[in-house]
């Protein structure tokens, strides 16, 4: 009896498990089927024979490799710049002593509460005026700027916890301020660097709205943008569509499966600072 009620209690958890996962299972399955199997003979289950040719077609006929490359370039460069700029800034406002450091910090943090819609229009004009339209810079620059406030917030939290003695010791040992930063402080905040890297890389990789507005050149499209245009032209070939979508999702899903704890922590760390 107790056993039965326990199973009944947990039923909603497993029901939602199905709701969350089955659509993805369905997508992967149809990426391995032909239209006949998807539409008529076997719409719900595993494919009867795995049609890898959908994947070959997706990779070779479409621009998928190009989109992948663009996503990797944009996300990587943006993330590296976010880390560098935010670490430096956070160090200046938490550890160094100057008059307006509190003000500078607040000024930066305000940016976290600015929805992207409010900067969309001037940003499009800025990108045009800076001659950045249809370059990687058109995405990298905004991604860096948007990433900075949040990252500064996280790094400041960690850096504020470093004891004074560490700086004093470094000073005694004759390290200059630059060495203190690079060889003492940065290594001490590695957990925060991991968190910020995961968070920013994922956000940049999946960013859609700005990419949609700022990029029109086919050769510069990132994955989320590139995939959009399969909808119209290939909407009748579900197998290839499914293959394209599965391929595009694979990197992030794998990263998540390998580092699930860290990814969940990184993605939800905002809750501690934003509320």
């Amino acid at each position: 009896m107790k056993q039965a009620s326990r199973i009944l209690m947990q039923l909603p958890l497993w029901l939602y498990f199905v709701i969350s996962i089955y659509p993805l299972f369905w997508m992967v399955s149809y990426s391995l089927k032909n239209n006949d199997e998807i539409f008529v003979t076997n719409p719900f289950g595993l494919p009867m024979n795995f049609r890898i040719e959908n994947y070959v077609a997706a990779w070779s006929q479409f621009n998928i490799p190009r989109y992948f490359l663009n996503s990797i370039v944009v996300s990587t460069v943006a993330t590296v710049l976010i880390l560098a700029l935010s670490l430096l800034f956070a160090f200046a406002v938490t550890r160094m002593q100057w008059r307006f450091r509190g003000l500078a910090r607040i000024y930066m943090i305000i940016g976290m509460f600015m929805p992207i819609q409010v900067i969309m229009i001037p940003l499009a004009i800025l990108v045009r005026d800076f001659q950045l339209a249809n370059t990687y810079g058109a995405l990298i620059l905004p991604y860096v700027a948007i990433g900075i406030p949040f990252s500064v917030m996280v790094f400041s939290g960690y850096m504020a916890g470093i004891p004074r003695e560490v700086e004093e010791a470094a000073c005694m040992d004759g390290a200059n301020i630059y060495r203190l930063f690079f060889q003492v402080v940065v290594p001490m905040v590695t957990p925060a660097i991991a968190t910020v890297t995961i968070f920013q890389y994922l956000n940049n990789w999946n960013e859609f709205t700005l990419a949609y507005i700022l990029i029109s050149e086919e050769t510069l499209k990132t994955l989320p943008l590139g995939l959009l245009f399969f909808q119209g032209s290939y909407s009748t070939d579900w197998g290839a569509m499914g293959a394209v979508m599965t391929l595009a999702s694979l990197p992030m899903v794998l990263i998540y499966l390998f580092f699930s704890e860290q990814v969940e922590r990184a993605m939800t760390v905002g809750s501690a600072v934003k509320g």
Binding site: L13, W14, Y16, F17, S20, I21, P23, L24, M27, L202, W205, N206, F208, L223, P224, L225, L227, L228, F230, Q231, M241, M245, A248, S249, M252, V253, I255, Y256, L257, S260, V263, E264, M267
Partner: peptide
């Protein structure tokens, strides 16, 4: 369970919408 619930979060919004 937690993993299954979280996977859609890391997908691109384009993939999810097209799915």
């Amino acid at each position: 369970l937690k993993t299954a619930y979280f996977i859609p979060v890391v997908l691109s919004v384009t993939v999810v919408c097209q799915l």
